[in-house]
Simulated assay, not measured.
Amino acid sequence: MEPSVSIIFIIVGAVVAISLFLYILPVNLWFTAQLSGVRINLLNLVLMRLRRVPPSLVVNAMITSTKAGLNITSNEIETHYLAGGHVNNVIKALISADKANIPLDFKLATAIDLAGRDVFEAVQLSVNPRVINTPPVAAVAKDGIQLIAKARVTVRANINQLVGGAGEETILARVGEGIVSTIGSSTSHKEVLENPDSISKVVLSKGLDSGTAFEILSIDIADIDIGENIGAKLQTDQAEADLKVANAKAEERRAIAVAFEQEMRAKAQDARAKVIEAEAQVPLAMAEAFRNGNLGIMDYYKMQNIQADTEMRGAIAKPGSSSGKTDKK
């Protein structure tokens, strides 16, 4: 029993040793690369292990690129992997770009990939343009009528602008700005409804795709709806505002008039008080005249008669008095 157990341990140890040797020295992978026409040193595969780079990833990428006619070295692939890039995605993008005659080299592809963009999707977008639907854009023509337009923007990726270029949001914002500007410069909303393609021509002529990661191929107006009569609404609001201002000014003038009337009444009351005060001085003056001998009793009676006669004449002269009616008869 003891010799057989030792043999089993020896066999297991040999298998483990061989597996470990083949893992450190990937002969099968090297042999596959040689059969595929990829010239790579076996020592480089061992060093890849030590640098924590999967040799299978590098070899498979080199096999794929070599079969596609691309000249990419193992050092370039290894460097991109260590930089955190997606090697397989870059290789697929290079192959697609080469087949579609799109100028794209390994350096630009890795830069796009490391910038966070999907380089393979970008190449596909260059071959198959994408249609972007803009949200409803509201604008007002010079005649005050609001128009609500929707557009379809056909774009394709601009490979050379993918690094540092603006995205779809910028395209939508610029197209919306162009639509608002074009409708706003139109004399009448009827002109826009009759020729909606005029919006597309004006917007396209502005070069809205400059500095973006896309190239605008066409802008098509999908729908235009008539909104509110903004001009009439503004005039109505202005009229209401003017009415409020006029009412406020009228109320101010009325308040001034009321204040002036109250002031005049106060002055009249003050004048009456002064008259009453002056009349109160008459009896005192008469008494003083009697004491000083300047006024006699007969003079006083004559004055009383004159006052009575004056009051009688005033009563007769009043319209509607009984004496007046008798005289008329």
Rank of each mutant, 00 (worst) to 15 (best):
V140M: 05
G69C: 02
S188I: 05
R313E: 13
D309E: 09
L243K: 15
M286L: 15
D98S: 15
G178P: 04
I276L: 14
T134Q: 05
L125D: 13
E263K: 11
K233F: 05
A166T: 07
E215K: 03
D270L: 10
N28V: 15
S218K: 13
S321L: 07
V5P: 00
D237F: 05
G69Y: 01
V163S: 01
S210V: 12
K201G: 08
T212H: 03
R156H: 12
T212K: 01
Q146P: 00
I11E: 07
R52V: 12
L82M: 10
G176V: 05
D113F: 02
L50V: 15
N247E: 15
Q34W: 05
A232V: 09
I316F: 12
N89W: 00
V140K: 08
E121L: 11
R51Y: 10
A149K: 11
G167I: 01
N229P: 03
R52I: 10
G84M: 04
M62S: 08
A278L: 14
Y300W: 14
D299I: 03
I221C: 10
G207S: 02
V275A: 13
N294Y: 05
Q34D: 00
G320T: 05
S126T: 14
I256W: 05
T326F: 13
A273K: 13
A255W: 05
A151V: 11
K267W: 03
E261R: 12
M312Y: 13
G84N: 04
L193R: 02
I11K: 09
L108C: 01
G207I: 06
Q235S: 13
V38G: 01
A289N: 06
D220V: 13
I183T: 07
K329R: 14
G13I: 00
E277Y: 08
Y81T: 00
S65M: 04
V258C: 02
G144H: 06
G85K: 06
K302V: 08
N247Y: 09
N60Y: 14
K318S: 10
L42S: 08
L234S: 11
E76N: 10
V153F: 04
A246G: 07
E177I: 00
L45K: 02
I7K: 12
G324N: 13
D105R: 03
N294P: 00
M62D: 03
I132Q: 01
K142N: 06
Q146R: 12
G296R: 06
L70F: 04
S126A: 14
A289V: 01
V90C: 02
E76V: 12
G116M: 05
A280T: 04
S186H: 04
I316Y: 11
S205N: 10
V258H: 03
A100K: 07
G116P: 02
R39L: 05
G13C: 10
I145S: 04
D143C: 01
A115T: 06
A248K: 09
L147F: 07
A157E: 07
